[in-house]
Design a protein around this nucleic acid. Structure first.
Lengths: 415, 415
DNA sequence: CAGTATTTTTTCGAGGCTCGAAAAAATAGA
DNA sequence: TCTATTTTTTCGAGCCTCGAAAAAATACTG
């Protein structure tokens, strides 16, 4: 462990730094990059002229129209969209979505497809995934060689090495190494990520002011998922994608969860749990396979209508989420929360009980100051997160290569 | 954010790397250091000769007696004990302990003292702490100028900046900035750390094989504390020392906790909770201020004697700890656990219920493979952790200084 | 419209760092 | 005493970043 820094690593790291600065800032001038990286102008000049020659960056016209200043106008540097491309594959319950994204982050082409993921065989699930990717790669407008990376996101648990799905609620099959499958099939490096982690990555890029170093993204969907960024890094478990917030225990020996255990947060706050409680089916009732978004919206509407089992179901969901968040906050301290997914649209029904519960916990000391944001649609977020993950891989591993070991330094999990 | 690497940072980082290699390995030769750091022999030679001239390292006799090999014998490098010294201050319930440690990690001098921390005024608590440090500094055998760092550990919550105790169960007073107080008083840089975090740091140095990158140290004492190392880094909250495992919610609206809330893990597993249950005082009974170690040992003996309220009390403690660990493992995946403190000596009474509970949780899937270790005495561990923390500060900030910003690189929390 | 002030970017030499190769040092075996 | 072997040091080469100065590109000024 703890490897020293070779002399040639210097350039590599600083190249990566410049690329990262451009990706973050959009069209920064060399002077701005020098300021944010605290490297000298000479160094930035040298590195960026290399990157331009290599076709990674391009010079764009003076960044702002209102160049009211005197002096030589700044020349904006931007990512060359044609430098590379990446592909995202998002697999969720009964739905498969693929997109090709250029180096600057714009969607070039996409395709979506309904599947019956719960009943498909292992082979046909894999087959559908590879087929849709193959169709995209066959696009005549696309230079296949430019695709530098495939990022796959799935609802479920993935391994830390980002190679395989270990378990997922959307299919009975386990341990599918999608990353390896795509690499073998297409010869393109691939990674396999957890959907909620990708949501968190995307939120950070969308709104870096709110979602800076520490925040939580919670997916309120059929199941409950979480993506967590701590100290600027995506938080993952020691072996898996981790962060199984939905399966923290809310009530020992409580309601039956989809995972087969009892008393998980999800067994009170997942769509199926809200549905079960609203229909007064009892906590032991087998979770239903799926509840349509329309049904959930109808449920929320009924709950808003007046007091009754629907409203009580949302109250219980809020309570479970509140105690769960309280326990989480006991571990990590409070942080901004983004609620994502269908039931985030019903957050008005969830919030009161949630805040009341969180106030009972150690982490909820300043419960009023904990702020929630809602975003009803998770799919675009997941795709954006995948795209950024893949693009940053290209930035670091392809356009600034040459470092052997990652231990000690090398922010691998930087969201 | 994300600062580039200056040319002069190179030497600084590699110096730090060499010092760290020596601290880890004990008496490594230059060749061994070159191997572990993957720097060239020339570089190691240059850096180590600098460090020797500066009095930071010394050459020791050939590392092993059995130099059966041919060739020129290796020269061991070791830390010069006189290069610097650090002081540790450990403040726990009714007890204050101070030690001076040389640069190589050996205790030079120490002093311990009983206090009535629960009833002392703020001023006298601070006064006792500064007085004991002053007495140690007055030791004629000690060169005061060599003291490069004071590390203070306290049971309770500290801030992420390692300046202040925010809240502690050992005193009614809050927000005492011990680090600032010591710095102002003695002009020596100081840090304020959480006791359980220091336990984790110490475990990692004691047994790097078992406690490598991911593990958990749990203090089973009057209260329940936790120190957590994830991916080789000490885990802290976003604002505070965090990791308040003892105040995760075990049962909503459950037993009364010392913190004033209800249903915390500690309200079932802290010494006062075990005592309360064993004495059948009811879950609403006000927690007692302190239970002596002797009383706890008697309780454990009674529990081992036969079935009864004592045994049931330990069972409840195990259940709470098990569900809590299960929820924690849902977030971070399972990892080795060290149980520290008086009640760790009664772990035989706790373990069955703990394992049974953990098996009910998502994190406990492989509950049999989760391994527990016990260590009944927390104080030496805390002191060792403090010492290592302080020494590593000296290694990095004093003997390899010169880096301005830490963002991006700079492993601040490396245990 | 020419000249001046101002700001950005590039150029160039200096200084430092790591590296590889070769030399020097230090020991065990023959 | 000589040779083989291993560790450590020495030395020149090659990069990299930096600061200063030059070059480039614009706005202002009279």
């Amino acid at each position: 462990m703890s490897v020293g820094i070779r002399h040639d690593d210097l350039r590599r790291r600083n190249r990566a730094m410049v690329i990262a600065a451009v990706r973050r800032a959009g069209q920064p001038s060399r002077t701005e990059i020098a300021a944010t990286t605290s490297l000298s102008h000479s160094t930035i000049s040298a590195i960026s002229s290399d990157l331009i020659v290599e076709g990674i960056l391009t010079e764009s016209k003076p960044s702002e129209a209102g160049s009211l200043k005197r002096g030589r106008p700044q020349v904006g540097l931007s990512l060359n969209p044609e430098a590379a491309a990446v592909m995202t594959v998002v697999l969720s319950l009964n739905f498969l979505s693929v997109a090709v994204i250029d180096y600057a982050g714009q969607v070039i082409s996409e395709e979506q497809r309904r599947l019956d993921t719960l009943t498909m065989s292992r082979e046909s699930l894999i087959g559908e995934c590879t087929a849709i990717v193959r169709r995209r790669l066959a696009d005549p407008d696309l230079d296949v060689r430019s695709i530098a990376r495939i990022a796959v996101a799935i609802q479920g648990i993935t391994d830390t090495r980002a190679r395989a799905m270990l378990w997922s609620p959307i299919t009975p099959h386990t341990d599918i190494a999608f990353a390896d499958i795509f690499e073998d099939e297409f010869g393109i490096p691939a990674i396999m990520e957890n959907d909620c982690n990708m949501m968190a990555v995307a939120l950070r890029w969308r709104d870096p002011d709110r979602y800076r170093d520490d925040f939580i993204a919670i997916l309120l969907s059929h199941g409950i998922g979480m993506g967590l960024v701590l100290k600027g890094e995506l938080f993952t478990g020691t072996h898996s994608s981790g962060g199984e917030f939905g399966h923290m225990i809310h009530r020992p020996n409580g309601a039956l969860c989809r995972c087969g255990r009892r008393g998980c947060v999800e067994a009170y706050a997942g769509n199926y749990a809200i549905w079960r409680n609203a229909r007064q089916m009892g906590e032991d009732a087998e979770p239903v396979a799926d509840v349509s978004d329309a049904d959930m919206r109808a449920l929320a509407a009924a709950a808003r209508e007046g007091d009754g089992p629907e409203r009580e179901a949302y109250r219980k969901a809020g309570e479970a989420l509140g105690y769960g968040l309280g326990s989480l906050f006991a571990l990590i301290d409070p942080a901004p929360v983004a609620m994502v997914g269908v039931s985030a649209a019903a957050f008005d029904l969830i919030e009161p009980a949630l805040r009341q519960a969180i106030a009972q916990t150690a982490g909820g000391q300043h419960s009023k100051s904990i702020s929630f944001d809602t975003e009803p649609n998770e799919l675009p977020l997941i795709r954006e997160g995948c795209a950024m993950r893949a693009l940053i891989f290209v930035d670091q591993e392809i356009f600034a290569p040459g470092v052997q070991a990652r231990s000690g330094f090398g922010g691998k999990n930087v969201a």
